[in-house]
């Protein structure tokens, strides 16, 4: 498959990120293709979360962060965008720690559409149900949509976070270690949902579970110390002879 016949959803070029004087991401370039699942693996502190924060520009809220280089979403540089809120709706983000907002379960999911200006009850109801179903949470909470989102269990809150990220119909979904707080059975259910979602949206999956990347990702990127060690199809990355021997060691857990 030649590189040009797939549309590029996100193009990252020469991206550098520093917190204060400490550079965390050192000039990385890669792209994310439309409707693929891109797995990102790498040890702790390698800058995976920080990288995601550059994509939807929530890095702006960190006053000490300095970003250079370019991130283009659908060809448009995110740092030139006027409507950063539209960008954030385009890129759904699931944070590693579950955050149920101190609102009702319903409002947790309806928050984003409401912020975007949607007020019609019927539409909101439909969105809430669809997203909670996709996040494999609907059956557990459908009778108590009024109770507080913070009162759910950790795993349920994580799925609520996923539902919230889907509620603004993102074109790209970034999942940052989404399965930390979720049991294996539910994780599998969500993974199935992700496989279905791939037909409509692009997914970036940051994970500490190498096998999860292996199961889901079309391509996998190995990030280490703020540099891309390797990015290739998942088959190659997990094969016996990836381009870089470090990759071989890391995916087999004999790293360091």
């Amino acid at each position: 498959m030649s590189r040009d016949d797939v549309r590029k959803k996100i193009e990252v070029e020469d991206l550098r990120l520093a917190y204060g004087s400490q550079e965390i991401i050192h000039s990385i370039s890669f792209d994310v293709r439309e409707n693929e699942i891109l797995g990102i693996i790498g040890p702790a502190q390698s800058g995976k979360t920080s990288l995601l924060r550059c994509l939807n520009r929530t890095i702006d809220f960190c006053a000490r962060a300095r970003v250079s280089g370019s991130v283009r979403v659908d060809g448009e540089d995110v740092r030139q965008m006027k409507d950063v809120f539209a960008l954030r709706r385009k890129i759904g983000m699931v944070a590693p720690l579950p955050v149920g907002l101190p609102l009702s379960i319903y409002d947790n999911v309806a928050f984003a559409p409401r912020s975007a200006g949607l007020t019609r009850k019927v539409e909101l109801n439909a969105i809430v149900e669809r997203c909670l179903r996709q996040a494999a949470l609907w059956d557990e909470v459908k009778d108590r949509l009024d109770s507080l989102g913070t009162a759910l269990s950790g795993g349920q809150q994580q799925r609520l976070t996923i539902a919230r990220a889907l509620s603004h119909q993102p074109e790209v979904l970034c999942l940052d270690e989404f399965s930390i707080a979720i049991d294996p059975v539910t994780t599998m259910r969500i993974e199935d949902v992700l496989k279905t979602l791939r037909r409509e949206i692009t997914i970036i999956l940051v994970t500490n579970l190498n096998q999860q990347a292996r199961r889901l990702a079309d391509r996998t990127m190995f990030l280490w110390g703020g540099r891309i060690v390797e990015i290739d199809t998942t088959e190659v990355v997990f094969s016996d002879n990836p381009a870089n021997p470090q990759t071989y060691d890391y995916v087999r857990g004999v790293f360091g």
């Binding site: 929530t58 809120f85 912020s115």
Partner: peptide, 8 residues
């Protein structure tokens, strides 16, 4: 952050 992430 959760709110900002969804474009609020």
């Amino acid at each position: 952050e959760a709110c900002w992430n969804v474009g609020a």
